[in-house]
């Protein structure tokens, strides 16, 4: 799925990385705990989160992810937007909840991220 399709499906706003919407992603993981993301997620993809701080961008960057979706109408700070640009990450915001966002992306073919338990 191209990131552009995610934008359309979620009616999302593009906060950073508008030039990278043609990139393909195949999996996603949702959590407000970055500890869990760091410990479980194996493959690169999309991070869904309702957490708002710099560490969501850093976690996604550390794990070589492509896209962050901030759910529940959460808005990034300017610093977060800059960090996302610096790390080639697309940063999206949506008014939808984590559950709604997950459901829409899942039924449209975005797979659960591969995971391995520590």
């Amino acid at each position: 799925m191209k990131i552009q399709e995610i934008v359309s499906l979620l009616n999302a706003d593009v906060q950073s990385g508008a030039d990278k919407l043609d990139e393909e992603v195949s999996s996603a993981f949702g959590s407000d705990m970055m500890s869990e993301v760091l410990a479980y997620v194996q493959d690169q993809g999309v991070l869904l989160t309702g957490l708002v701080n710099e560490q969501i961008v850093r976690t996604a960057a550390m794990m070589n992810m492509y896209c962050i979706i901030m759910v529940r109408g959460k808005q990034p700070t300017d610093n977060m937007k800059e960090m996302a640009e610096d790390n080639d990450l697309v940063l999206l915001t949506t008014e939808l909840t984590m559950y709604e966002t997950s459901g829409i992306l899942y039924t449209n073919g975005l797979n659960p991220a591969g995971h391995s338990y520590v």
Partner: peptide, 11 residues
């Protein structure tokens, strides 16, 4: 703030 799940050292 999204941390402290007790997975740091094992990870």
């Amino acid at each position: 703030a999204g941390f402290g799940a007790g997975m740091g050292l094992p990870n």
